[in-house]
Design a protein around this nucleic acid. Sequence first.
DNA 1: TTGTAAGCGTTATCAG
DNA 2: CTGATAACGCTTACAA
Lengths: 340, 340
Amino acid sequence: MVKRQRITINDVAREAGVSPSTVSRVISKNPRISKLTTESVLSHMKRLGYHPNAIARNLAINSSKTIALIMPENPGEALLNPFFPVALRGIVKTSTKNGYDILLSSTTEITDMQIVKGLVSAAKVDGVLFMTSKIENKSIEYLREIEFPFSVIGSPYEDVDDTNHVDNDNERASYELTTYLVDKGSKSIALITGGRFLTLTEQRIKGFRRAISEKGLDEESGRLFVGEFNEETGYRYAREIIDSGEKFDAVVATDDVVAYGVVSAFIERGLSVPEDTMVAGFNNSLLSRQCAVPITSVEINADLLGAQAVDIIMENIRNGERQKKRTVPCTIFKRKSTWD
Amino acid sequence: MVKRQRITINDVAREAGVSPSTVSRVISKNPRISKLTTESVLSHMKRLGYHPNAIARNLAINSSKTIALIMPENPGEALLNPFFPVALRGIVKTSTKNGYDILLSSTTEITDMQIVKGLVSAAKVDGVLFMTSKIENKSIEYLREIEFPFSVIGSPYEDVDDTNHVDNDNERASYELTTYLVDKGSKSIALITGGRFLTLTEQRIKGFRRAISEKGLDEESGRLFVGEFNEETGYRYAREIIDSGEKFDAVVATDDVVAYGVVSAFIERGLSVPEDTMVAGFNNSLLSRQCAVPITSVEINADLLGAQAVDIIMENIRNGERQKKRTVPCTIFKRKSTWD
DNA sequence: TTGTAAGCGTTATCAG
DNA sequence: CTGATAACGCTTACAA
């Protein structure tokens, strides 16, 4: 790589016949610079192909203009969820808009703390954004303690409001989805969830139960099946349900891919959706829209989750602590799998 | 946020009774510092809770120790491919190992150039990694011109070897998969690909055709169907094939999700896999492993793609240009959908 | 083996 | 409105 001589603020100053500080002021659009000099300086900047050095600037203003994005190391979690890339877009877009860059870091639970401490104390970042919502996250405690800007996508634990985070109102989404199914005529619904260690799971269970009881169905009409975020979970439970002879006229799955597994199992056994059983999922993924029987699904607006998480950090940086929690709305997309 | 007074190299120096340069040398493990002072300095560093300021360091050494990751803005492309998060892991891991951070940027085609130029000329990054392999990428040209370290995941165009990039040997993978199917007894195979503007598509077609002809099948035994990376493509073509009455005893799909669509369509029509038709896909995704009829699939080792792409940049930074192209091996995972 | 001092490219304070 | 000058925190000749 050839050694390109950097053009600095001094070069521009010399050429334009002004002082470096004047050039600096032009760059930062300081209003007290005369229109004339501003234009002259700008033209020289362009002529010389000058670009301000971000690192030098950051050193001077003592800020990195960067926020760290901590994502879980193991793909089992957020990573292979279609939600992930979408949230990522929201994050990048919003931080860019605010003049901040995103520094990527992945972690294992063990090194989590080290990495965060490292980034923070090396002054590499001005804020930290967690895409994992591990319960009992030590590094979150740490950041809170030193009052360092951060936020979390998802809920670190249930009913938090003393930790910066952004989440969907999962309880409500689940409630509304369930209510909708009952209104469509369902008398007994199965809910297939992810692991119960996930806040999200608990919230969706709550909403589900609330709807069941409010609609006057008895508890037995709302049964729980705990599994994972994959097709197999749906497939397996669906077969189990069929084989057991229990009558469910609707199934809610915690992710579209699970819902898809359910549909597959039903069809394989000669049952039809929605005629024999209605099926609904979460995440409004491509899959839910494009498969043979389009599946009703809850859009969680992952891009907004990302954007809001960044916003929280920005507010933190600018004004110190403010609003700790934000909620992103969900929307139910009604499709053929529930008669729409 | 409370104002925490930064502990600098000077504080440590003063406390340890040495000069700042000595402390600096201890940090950078300069061998010509006596063991005694080294230890003393280290202990004082720890006692004071000192952490070197990365920004100041970067300014001094005139390097950001950061590489930019350019990912496509529209989710249609890499983003919702399960390949994406896996590659990301490889990228982050490898760059971390080399002491580099990853700066995330997403782009639209229009702003691509601006973003890259911005990052480079602001000295924010020491290298650029493209996750999109758009043909005719202007910013790649630019970087090549100014001899700035970069690399691309995927092939910018066919038979390139003058551009840093890393890719699978798609021609070969496709060839081997096809050969394997013929050896399993197939006499006529359908290939469902993605858009023909993708280098990957062309390469896979080539390999497919080579296998067909080498195995002595006539051209009609190897038919092409061009579609997209989604289930619907597979589903639609499979039905088309069934309805047309054409006899294919094997289908190769360019992604597991497409293969899955194919399987669904067959099963729906009362045909079975692999008995009536064998099916194989690419990417060895969760889907291919976990669905009802596990699907034979080609593992493309996305994490290696990411890791190697970073390696190329590292080599570029350290030694100027070197090896321009690297190939990551594929492995066929044989499953029930092809009698294994 | 260690210290001195001059950068690295900005911004910010304080005069004028 | 503009210019000196001193930070920002670290590295690196060059000296000792």
